[in-house]
Design a binder for these strands. Structure first.
Length: 200
DNA sequence: CCATTGATCCCCT
DNA sequence: GGGGATCAATGGG
């Protein structure tokens, strides 16, 4: 995008390198199943990336990632959690942006019903699996078209970049993006087996 | 720090 | 075809 987009984001917005799309998604609103979140934190993944599910080529699980941009890629992990991505790039690129955290700006009661009655508003979608749960996403939502469900904020946000969370490979690339100072960004946690951070 | 929990996928037979 | 390590996480100590 040459200019900062407004309104509903078209498929062309997503049909770019996930590393370019990711920071542009900060501040955007995603709506599904009665809940709207303002995105505060994302991570980019792509096929030439050892930490990406698409790294070893298409599989049954990652089929959606290799399809056209603008669709939702939902995966199940750790035997109990779902996480959601927006597919990016040209058809077949195997790229996506993981939605890592957000602020529930509409449908708070619906989100709390899914997350639990005692969950603080701040924690409703602060974390990728929490966000997916708040949105009511599970394996049935894998492959769902998200065009029309993602809206630009219209107001610029201050983006910061740093290493991704929870991965053991390619932990040095700064493909995690978040809104500076936003309290709805998830707590950073490095993968236990990730190599030590590079010295300055 | 650690357990949870099961799908996936590598790699060897 | 199958054993087993790994895992884009969370919640509780």
């Amino acid at each position: 995008m040459s200019e900062s987009p407004t309104g509903l984001l078209p498929r062309a917005f997503f049909a770019r390198d996930s590393v370019e799309v990711a920071p542009d998604l900060l501040g955007c609103k995603v709506t599904a199943n009665g809940v709207t979140v303002r995105v505060t934190e994302v991570e980019a993944y792509r096929e030439d990336d050892p930490a990406s599910h698409s790294f070893r080529g298409p599989t049954k699980r990652t089929a959606v990632m290799f399809g056209p941009a603008g669709f939702l890629y939902v995966y199940f992990t750790y035997g109990m959690h779902f996480c959601a991505n927006l597919v990016c790039g040209e058809n077949g690129a195997g790229a996506a942006v993981l939605l890592r955290a957000g602020e529930v700006v509409s449908g708070v009661e619906t989100a709390r019903k899914r997350r639990g009655p005692k969950i603080a508003e701040r924690d409703l979608a602060r974390g990728p699996a929490r966000l997916a749960q708040a949105m009511g996403w599970d394996r049935d939502d894998d492959g769902r078209d998200m065009i029309g469900a993602v809206e630009a904020s219209g107001t610029p946000v201050a983006a910061l970049a740093g290493p991704r969370t929870g991965i053991s490979k390619a932990a040095d690339v700064a493909w995690r993006f978040w809104i500076a100072g936003d309290r709805f960004v998830s707590p950073y946690k490095r993968h236990p087996k990730a190599p030590a951070e590079a010295a300055e």
